[in-house]
Amino acid sequence: MSEIKKFMFVNRKAPYGTIYALESLEVVLITAAFDQDVSLVFLDDGVFQLKKGQQTKGIEIKNFSPTYRALEGYDVEKLYVMKESMEARGLTEDDLLVPVTVLTGAEMGALMDEQDVVLSF
């Protein structure tokens, strides 16, 4: 594992309705231990994972949204959100709980092409 590879995690599902978002986050935290180049992208309903103000008491599921703010401490600093996905959901960057880079679909596609490994959730 001496060679650094570019890993991209593609998040396309809303939190809580399915387990994908939480599973992805856990794999990202584990991957971060291996000193690889990690990018997280959020598109389609995946952008909902980063919505501020999640309150899960009423559905009795752990609120894992604060963990996205821990990613910086894990040296995972490349977070990208797709512009069209965000706009289609009535969200702006101010609605998100971490700083992100907003990319258009075309820019997102180009970034995806540069990766060594792409994992979809």
Binding site: K62, T67, R69
Partner: peptide, 15 residues
């Protein structure tokens, strides 16, 4: 309390 996870050792050491 803040992040809802126990940090990895490397992250803990740095923090």
């Amino acid at each position: 309390e803040e992040y809802q996870i126990a940090p990895a050792v490397r992250v803990l050491t740095k923090a």
